[in-house]
């Protein structure tokens, strides 16, 4: 569904990603893990088009994304839940979801997707008229995921959904991701610091370090020992 072919990204001469290749298969949950500064968020931004590629290709459902501007990629079915949530603070919860549903697929599937969002996160239905900026961190994360789901995406990219949340709230978010995976119609790409949780849930994992892929494989094959080696070099 999504294939990254040896992509490289630089910020002002500084290499953020070098020759990263990645294969995300339809219906699976793939995780990208790695220490801070490994280039995980950059990888997501390259896929959604807000940072330019220096080399390589990104193919989404057979189309090369190279010539496609960032905002069009959302309409193709790529939904990116950015790090730090980034809800539209001065819009209400419902308006945030409406913004998500403004894609072509989102408009068509609106009734069903809103039902799904409100079933997954009932609190959003309760607070639909509240300004998003006044929600708690966990509720904002739910809204950010809800906003992405409202676009009826084919690929959902979640960047550190548990960041800054209480363990209980993080569990709630992970439960929701688990639920989405079980429903199976959305391919999920997850960046996470809580490596154990991420590995417990995903089908396939990639370990990034200093902008390079150092390890990849089926989650079941990635033993704790090999991960520790990749992370710590011991």
């Amino acid at each position: 569904m999504l294939r990254l072919d040896q992509i490289s990204v630089s910020y002002g001469g500084l290499r953020a990603l070098s020759d990263v290749s990645l294969d995300v298969r339809a219906g699976e949950l793939s995780a990208v893990v790695g220490p801070n500064g490994a280039g995980k968020s950059t990888l997501f931004k390259a896929i959604s088009g807000t940072v330019p590629l220096q080399a390589g290709h990104i193919m989404f459902q057979g189309d090369d994304l190279h010539e496609i501007p960032a905002h069009r990629r959302a309409h193709m079915g790529i939904a990116h839940v950015p790090e730090g949530r980034r809800v539209f603070a001065s819009l209400s919860v419902l308006e945030n979801l409406e913004m998500g549903a403004a894609t072509d697929a989102g408009r068509a599937g609106r009734v069903r997707s809103f039902e799904r969002i409100f079933t997954l996160f009932p609190i959003l239905a309760e607070r639909r008229a509240q300004m998003a900026g006044t929600l708690s961190g966990g509720q904002q994360q739910m809204l950010a995921i809800g906003r992405a789901l409202a676009s009826c995406p084919k690929l959902l990219m979640l960047d550190e959904p548990s960041m800054g949340l209480s363990p209980v709230m993080a569990d709630t978010i992970f439960d929701a991701i688990h639920q989405l995976r079980r429903e199976g119609d959305i391919t999920i790409l997850l960046v996470e610091q809580r490596v154990t949780d991420a590995l417990a849930q995903c089908d396939r994992a990639t370990v990034l370090e200093s902008g390079r892929v150092v390890l990849e494989g089926l989650a079941s094959e990635l033993s704790a020992a090999r991960l520790r080696q990749a992370y710590l070099g011991v």
Binding site: P82, R86, L91, E95, A102, A148
Partner: peptide, 22 residues
């Protein structure tokens, strides 16, 4: 709708791009 997408772009240009706003 136009007004709401203007406000969304104002609140967060990056996130607005991710929901398909130019």
């Amino acid at each position: 709708g136009i007004g709401k997408s203007l406000r969304a772009a104002a609140d967060n240009p990056e996130a607005a791009t991710y929901v398909g706003i130019d």
